[in-house]
């Protein structure tokens, strides 16, 4: 790791002010992605501004129609929150599948979304549930937020403060783990809103990050069942291909994981 300056922010405003002072500042939340990247010397921020101890950024609020997860809430706390487990069980389960137990204690939803790793889990839930990403400046819809590989709508210095998820009628998430990294080789989140809309998002599969899967959405809208997808074919165009999964294999996984997510949906 290159030398840097560490600051612990006391509030969101303090964090934004510290950020503005740094030449090449970066926000640090759980650090479970940023710190490994810095250790590999692939990032060299002049300053890291720690958001994880800001009280306003921690907590989960479950209402009648929405769930709000504040940005610096660790995955472990999301996965074990009893009210959330009841409201959107698939989201709690997804949080419990990220990384490993030690990573889940520190990694946060805000950090995950700001980084937008193409194989991260949270983006699938945010996109499929049509969540709203709240920042210190504005609210951004899920569709507008993700801009491709490691790229988001966030402006320089903008801080995610919370994510609000509409509570769906039912939702499910199934993940096929990359044999080495344990990220999603492909993960699929399926959701049916209370008004009957179906949204399906896949992570880990596309070279441009999290994506909707219209073919599966149409089939599930007509018939919400795993067998409804038997005849659906997912195109391999634009999907990633690497040592652990060819594009046609990932296309297959999108369908198979969608079927399993539907089976598990609640």
């Amino acid at each position: 790791m290159y030398e840097t300056h560490y600051h612990r922010a006391s509030s969101v405003d303090d964090a934004a002010a510290q950020f503005a002072k740094g030449a090449e500042a970066k926000y640090l939340s759980g650090g479970q992605t940023l710190l490994p990247v810095m250790k590999q010397r692939l990032a060299a921020p002049s300053d890291v501004i720690d958001l994880a101890k800001i009280p306003a950024l921690i907590g989960i609020e479950v209402g009648g129609d929405n769930v709000t997860i504040k940005a610096a809430t660790p995955h472990y706390d999301v996965s074990t929150n009893a009210a959330l487990q009841k409201a959107i069980p698939a989201l709690a389960a997804l949080a419990g599948m990220i990384g490993d137990p030690a990573v889940r204690y520190r990694g946060t939803i805000g950090g995950s979304l700001a980084n937008n790793d193409p194989a991260a889990d949270y983006p699938a839930a945010v996109l499929a549930l049509d969540a709203t990403v709240k920042t210190n400046k504005r609210s951004i819809s899920a569709t507008d937020f993700f801009k491709g590989l490691f790229s988001t709508a966030l402006e320089d210095g903008e801080i995610i403060t919370a994510v609000t998820f509409p509570i769906p009628a039912r939702a499910g998430y199934a993940k096929f783990r990359h044999p080495a990294s344990r990220f999603a080789l492909t993960g699929v989140f399926v959701a049916q809103t209370k008004s009957g809309e179906v949204r399906v998002a896949a992570t880990g599969a596309s070279a441009s990050g999290v994506m909707r899967v219209p073919a599966i959405e149409q089939a599930l809208k007509a018939n919400w069942s795993a067998s409804a997808l038997d005849s659906v074919s997912v195109s391999a165009d634009g999907l990633m291909a690497d040592l652990h999964g060819a594009a046609d294999y990932r296309a297959n996984l999108i369908k198979v994981m969608a079927q399993r997510a539907v089976k598990d949906a609640a």
Binding site: Y6, L28, V48
Partner: peptide
């Protein structure tokens, strides 16, 4: 993981 934690944190 203490290798993925700055002592400042």
């Amino acid at each position: 993981k203490s290798c993925t934690t700055l002592v400042g944190q």
